[in-house]
């Protein structure tokens, strides 16, 4: 019953795991549990949205017309594409295709950057029109009049897209970290859990946007 670690200890195996499979499965379960907490956290904001929509349907319908459908649509396509390249990156890591792994990671980071740039222009437009959250709302100074209590809608808009935007920024951070590690050639068919887990996180960011887009920008 001697410890197996002495015989052959794979490079990436932490001391308290017996096998790489056990380690990978643990990391992945941990990631899914983390995603569960993320979903529940966002669910609070979505519930807030549904309640406000239930209370003030006319206001929400009128206020959402001021959001740019085009910008939202472009961002949706951008995020879906980045999700696609991320999935390809994970696949490249699985089969040990170093070149495609790095290329797809760079694409993913690039699309995330595009998303944030579009977001920046969207936010600037809202700031210019005085469509700010809560007590800072003063769109009527700029000649926009929305019946009811539009400051709540824009408050929610900034909370939801803002929290999502923070997740995109964090995503850019961890993707860059993975990219640097990938460039050192750390990942291959026997060890790619970090790529996979960051991929899962990135797909979740995409998932949240898949719901944010129709609810905030499209639904009449």
């Amino acid at each position: 019953m001697s410890a197996i670690a002495t015989a052959e200890h794979p490079e990436h195996l932490a001391h308290h795991f017996d096998t790489l499979e056990q380690q990978a499965a643990a990391a992945k379960l941990g990631m899914w549990l983390f995603l569960a907490t993320e979903i529940l956290m966002f669910s609070g904001l979505f519930l807030g949205y549904f309640i406000i929509r239930m209370f003030y349907p006319e206001m929400v319908l009128e206020a959402h017309e001021y959001l740019s459908k085009t910008a939202g649509g472009v961002n949706t396509v951008v995020l879906i594409t980045s999700s696609f390249t991320m999935a390809l990156a994970v696949r490249a890591a699985q089969v040990g295709d170093q070149k495609n792994l790095i290329r797809n990671l760079i694409f993913t980071i690039g699309f995330a950057g595009v998303f944030m740039v579009v977001k920046y222009f969207e936010y600037s437009a809202k700031f210019e029109h005085g469509m700010l959250p809560g007590k800072f709302y003063h769109a009527w100074d700029h000649g926009y009049y929305i019946e009811g209590l539009p400051h709540i809608f824009f408050g929610l808009y900034f909370c939801m897209t803002g929290l999502h935007g923070i997740h995109v920024l964090v995503g850019i951070g961890v993707l860059t970290w993975i990219l640097l590690r990938a460039k050192k050639g750390e990942f291959g068919p026997s060890y790619y859990t970090p790529v996979e887990n960051v991929g899962l996180y990135w797909h979740l960011v995409d998932l949240v946007w898949i719901f944010l887009f129709p609810l905030l920008y499209l639904v009449r």
Partner: peptide
């Protein structure tokens, strides 16, 4: 956020 921005939720 409610305290700092008064978003009204």
């Amino acid at each position: 956020i409610e305290r700092t921005l008064n978003i009204g939720i």
